[in-house]
Simulated scan of single mutants.
Amino acid sequence: MRHAFPFSAIVGQEAMKRAMILTAIDPSIGGVLVFGDRGTGKSTAVRALAALLPPITVVKGCPIQSANAADVPDWTGLETDTTVEVPTPVVDLPLGVSQDRVTGALDIERALTRGEKAFEPGLLAQANRGYLYIDEVNLLEDHIVDLLLDVAQSGENVVERDGLSIRHAAKFVLVGSGNPEEGDLRPQLLDRFGLSVEVASPNNLADRVEVIKRRDAFDRDPAGFVGSWSATDAEIRSRIIGARDRIRTLEAGDSVLEDCAKLCLALGSDGLRGELTLLRAARALAAFEEADEVTTFHVSDVAPLALSHRLRRDPLDDAGSATRVARVLADVFA
């Protein structure tokens, strides 16, 4: 059995871990973009979070992980209502992947051997109700980016070619990572990520030693290392499950909505997606912290995550995006 590195054992990177927890509580936040150095635990954190989350209930044999028989598409040919529990799916979308591999296409083998026109699901089907992880997302080909934008917006994958007319649910948390030195991300895709985080290698000697120590212990005895952190991971899992229940009834007053709007106006963010993401993230954080209501403190805590990647470029201001958000926070919430 292959073990994932424990989520709670990741040293530092608190902003990245918080962003991923918030999207686990409320997937409608819109995913996480992680930019930074190689080897800073980006892919490790995604797989660790998926392993941390409770399993999902799916119809046995359903290629899109439908929760019940009523949601199983007709094209699957499944005639069962038997359900099983499976781990939260994490699907890697590699660079250079073809459109057919992403969306699904005609099953050539069945067409040639049986003369049947059947659909072979792609990566979007596998990622439904889970995570779609794209490493080096800034190097992704434009036509794949456009495809992902459409699916992320609609929550549905539509295939109309080769004589096929297929639709199926494709709701997933999009997690992208990359190195900013290798190129910028297209603005259209950048805006689709709810939260963004900049990560860096630890510059503290003690932290670097602790990273090496934990990774070495995991590589030598994965099962033992995972077991030693299981109680801490279980506590985080319990808080996430509790937050999912609390968030349904957690209220945000008009003053909180005004705070969201003030921040976005002061930062000059385009559209209203910034305000909506800020509100959802603040509500998820309040639910995770077991607060009775969403407050200004929750808004200010998640503002750098929700707004840093939505700033307009300012050639006269060479400060980083996180610094600009912090500066506006200080002004607005003085």
Rank of each mutant, 00 (worst) to 15 (best):
E251I: 12
E251P: 00
A252R: 07
A252P: 08
A252W: 12
A252C: 13
A252E: 11
G253D: 14
G253F: 00
G253R: 12
D254T: 08
D254L: 08
D254S: 08
S255Q: 14
S255N: 13
S255K: 02
V256E: 07
V256M: 07
L257H: 05
L257Y: 05
L257W: 09
L257T: 00
L257F: 09
E258G: 00
E258A: 14
D259W: 01
D259T: 04
D259A: 15
D259K: 01
D259N: 07
C260K: 00
C260I: 02
C260Q: 02
A261W: 03
A261D: 01
A261M: 05
A261V: 09
A261N: 00
K262G: 02
K262E: 13
K262T: 07
C264Y: 05
C264V: 13
C264I: 01
L265W: 03
A266G: 13
A266S: 14
L267S: 12
L267Q: 13
L267G: 12
L267H: 11
L267I: 11
L267A: 09
G268Y: 12
G268F: 08
G268N: 11
G268E: 06
S269I: 11
S269C: 14
D270Y: 01
G271P: 09
G271R: 06
G271D: 07
G271S: 06
L272M: 13
L272A: 08
L272D: 04
L272N: 08
R273E: 05
R273Q: 12
R273P: 11
G274M: 06
G274S: 15
G274F: 04
G274E: 06
E275N: 15
E275D: 15
E275F: 05
L276C: 01
L276E: 07
T277E: 00
T277Y: 02
T277V: 14
L278F: 10
L278R: 02
L279Y: 14
L279H: 15
R280S: 11
R280I: 00
R280Y: 02
A282I: 13
A282N: 08
A282R: 04
A282P: 05
A282T: 10
A282Y: 10
R283P: 00
A284S: 11
A284G: 01
A284M: 03
L285R: 14
L285Y: 10
L285F: 09
A286R: 07
A286V: 10
A286I: 10
F288P: 11
F288N: 05
F288S: 06
F288I: 13
F288T: 09
